[in-house]
Simulated assay, not measured.
Amino acid sequence: MSNTIFGIDLGTNNIKIFNQSDKKILNEKNVIAIINKNQLFAYGDAAYEMHEKAPGNILVTFPVHFGVIADYKNMQILLIEFLKKASKTKLKNAEFIIAVPTDITEVEKKAFHDIVKSCGIKCKDVLIAEKPVADAIGIGLDIKSATGTLVVDMGADTTEISVLSLGGIVLSQLIHLGGNKLDESVISYIKKTHGIDIGKKTACALKETIGSAIKLDEPETMVAYGRDIVTGLPIEITIDSDLVYEAIKENLNSIVNNIKIILERTPPELSADIINHGVYLTGGGSLIKNIDVLLEQELKIKVNTCETPSESVVKGLMQMATDSKYRPLAYTMKVKIYN
């Protein structure tokens, strides 16, 4: 086994890299800023600061969309820079394990494998892991047992709903609905009700600061800035949590309905386990206030949350890479091991 092992979770909004040698997680925005069409200007958190603020000669982009690599070239540049930042040692002969969504094509999965192989690192090996499996391991579940587990990973562009048992995935559904869609709903709702156009960062801040999955007894408020669509002038407005709730409730109900569909398709014996142990909620989208309360009300099942839901996948990857119990759950693209 290599002394240097990296776990990589390429998310739409954030990239997470776990370096086994120093036990640290690099968690930065998965964004790149290119100047004059072909020169790297900034990446990560620094590039995100330029998002929606950059002049015409600086292009700020997110290389991953809906859980898959959409911009291979820029993702490759980003990955090389992030790996250099995450490691103080040489990357040669390092071993990598990278998470991929379950419900994507083999070609899309191979792109995750190839992006590491093509970085010019001369790595020892690149292993693939199913994201829901890594997710469950990262939050401390023993998925090798014959116990049914339901994991809901709410990401930026997607939500992955998976039932696991005996180290494998029994059912899984990837829906194109996540935190970014909620932000867009906030933007549209404020434009419709107040005639004010706000930016994506402002919408995200509103969602994260005063947003709630259920209506609050005592609404919270936040000052936001935008542009009046009638006069075209900058304007300041106070937004309350009820407005944000109204903007995002339909999307959250859609996620709930998709979880119900998976539960309806789950075999009875596994359903009994899920009822006993509850639903496990992870992903950055699960940080929305009271999302666990909403799910418990709608599903009538206990909902379990974790401290750092956005990092559960990358933590699971490292256990899969270093623990012989979970090692067989990762595979190469040449020979895939099915349970």
Rank of each mutant, 00 (worst) to 15 (best):
I175G: 02
S145N: 11
H113R: 03
S172V: 01
A129I: 05
I187Y: 04
F112D: 01
L177I: 13
A111G: 01
D135M: 06
D135F: 10
I143K: 04
V152S: 02
A129W: 07
K181D: 15
L177Q: 12
T158W: 01
I161H: 02
F112S: 09
V163E: 02
I161D: 02
V116Y: 00
A156L: 09
T147H: 13
I143L: 14
M154D: 02
V152L: 01
V152E: 01
D125G: 05
L141K: 12
P132D: 04
E160Y: 09
A156V: 02
G140H: 07
T158D: 12
I137A: 14
D183A: 05
S172I: 01
L174R: 02
P132H: 08
Y189P: 00
N180K: 14
E130I: 06
S188F: 08
P132K: 11
Y189N: 10
K117V: 07
S172L: 02
E130S: 14
L171V: 06
D125R: 13
L174C: 01
D142R: 10
S162D: 09
D135Q: 14
N180C: 04
S172A: 10
E184M: 09
L164T: 01
S162L: 12
I121L: 11
I143R: 04
G179Y: 08
S188Q: 14
T159D: 07
L150E: 04
C119N: 08
I175R: 06
G178I: 08
T158Y: 07
G148R: 10
N180G: 05
I121G: 01
S188T: 13
L141Y: 08
T147S: 13
L164H: 01
G138K: 06
I169T: 14
F112G: 04
T158G: 08
I161R: 01
T158I: 12
G167S: 05
E130Q: 15
L150C: 14
M154V: 13
N180F: 14
V126K: 00
H176D: 12
I139Y: 08
D183P: 00
G168C: 05
E184V: 08
G179T: 07
T159F: 09
I115L: 03
K122F: 13
K131L: 12
A136G: 15
G167L: 04
V133C: 06
S118A: 12
L166C: 14
